[in-house]
Simulated assay, not measured.
Amino acid sequence: MTHHDGAATVRPLALAWVSRYLEAGERIVRAEALHGGITAEMRRLTIGTRDGGTRDLVLRTFVDVEHAEDWLSREADALLLLTGTGVPAPALVAVDPAAAHCEYPSLLMTHVAGRTVLDDEGLAARIPLLARQLVAVHALRPAQRPRGYVALTTADTVVTPKSADAAAWAAAVDVIRKPAPPYAGRFLHRDFQPGNVLFDVPSGQPADARITGVVDWAATSWGPADLDVAHCSTVLALLHGPAWGLRFPEAYEEAGGVLAATANERLYWLVRDGLASSEEVQQVTQPWREAGRPELTARIVEERLDAYVTALMDALG
C-alpha cells in the first residue's frame, strides 16, 4: 500500500478491520489524507478490485475526542436513514464506535465524488443550491427521531472579540438569556455549511456548480429548522462576508423552507449560533486557510463575526 503523505498512514488494527469489509480479492492500494476537518482524521482509501479497477472508501477516525462513540453511532444511524432518500450522502460500510477493533473509534463509508468549495467566486449560484439541499434534509421524517439538539453556547460563555461593538454584543447576549422560542421539530444535520457540502464545478464555469454530496452527519439532531439555517448563515458570513450570512435565510424560504413565524424568534436562533462561533474562531480558521483561504486569519474572521452579529441586531433586534 502506498501513502500520499505521512498523515495518510492507516494504523495496523484499523487496516485489519477495514480489510474485513472488502470483497474477495480486493486490497487497499493507496491511502490519502483528506484535509479540512476539525475533529476527525479523514483518509480516502483506494481499493484495488479483482478486475483490475479501483474504488474508493473513506475512513473517519476520532483520536482522543470526547463523545466520539456517541458521534459515530449517530453518524452511522444517519447514513443508514439517508439510504434511498435522495439526499446525497455516503453509504455506511462499517462502524467501530467504541474502538473494539481499531486503535480509535472509526467509521468506514463509501466515497462521494466532488469537493468542498470555499471560494467567493460563484457563491451567488451556490447559495440557492445550499438552501434547496437543506430544505430536503429538513423534509426527512425518520421513524425514530435522533436526540434533541444541544445548544452550543450560553450567555455566560460567549467570547466577545476585543474590537467588537460592545453594545451590540451585550444586546445579543441578552437575546439568548431568554428561553428558546417554541418550534416545530425537524431532522437536523446540525453542521450544515459549505465545508460539509461537496460540489461538482465544471472547469471555468462556477455558476454551473451542482451538489454531489453532504457529509459529516455525526451531530444529527432533532430541533428547529432555524438552527441549521442559522449555522449555515454564520459560516457564510465568516467565509464570505456578513451580507451572505444575512442572505441565506431568505434563500431557504425561497427554496420552500419554513422558518420561525416572528422576527424575534428568528433573531434568537441566528444570534445563538453567531455567538457560539465566538468560542471557536481559532478552530475554524486554520482548516479554511489550509483549504485555500490564507487571508482568513483569526483577526479577519473575528471582524466579520462582529459585523455579522451587529448587522443581525440592527436588522432584527
Rank of each mutant, 00 (worst) to 15 (best):
H4V: 13
A7D: 12
L13I: 03
E23M: 10
E23I: 00
E23A: 14
R30Y: 12
E32I: 08
A33D: 09
G37Q: 07
T39R: 09
A40C: 15
R43K: 15
R44T: 08
R44K: 15
T46D: 06
T46R: 14
I47A: 07
G48Y: 06
G53K: 11
R60I: 13
T61Q: 11
T61S: 15
F62I: 00
W71H: 12
G86I: 04
G86Q: 02
A89Q: 06
V95I: 11
A98E: 13
A100I: 10
E103A: 10
E103M: 14
L107Y: 04
L107I: 14
M109P: 06
V112R: 12
V112L: 14
D119S: 13
L123V: 03
L123C: 05
A125E: 07
I127F: 04
P128F: 07
L129R: 08
R132K: 15
Q133C: 08
V137Y: 05
V137T: 02
V137D: 05
L140V: 09
Q144N: 12
R145A: 13
R145M: 13
P146K: 14
Y149G: 06
Y149W: 15
Y149T: 10
V150F: 09
A155N: 09
D156K: 12
D156L: 12
V158R: 06
P161D: 12
S163M: 10
A164T: 03
A172H: 02
V173F: 09
I176W: 01
R177E: 13
A180K: 03
P181V: 06
P182V: 14
F192I: 06
V197W: 01
F199H: 05
V201T: 12
Q205R: 14
I211K: 01
G213T: 09
G213A: 09
D216Y: 08
P224A: 15
C232H: 02
V235A: 00
L236F: 03
E254T: 14
A255P: 01
G256A: 10
A261I: 04
T262F: 06
T262P: 01
N264C: 08
E265M: 08
E265D: 15
E265A: 15
R266M: 06
L270K: 00
G274M: 03
S277N: 10
S278Q: 01
Q283L: 15
Q286H: 14
W288P: 01
R289S: 05
R289K: 13
R293M: 05
E295S: 09
L296S: 01
V301A: 01
E302Q: 10
E302I: 07
E303Q: 12
M313Q: 10
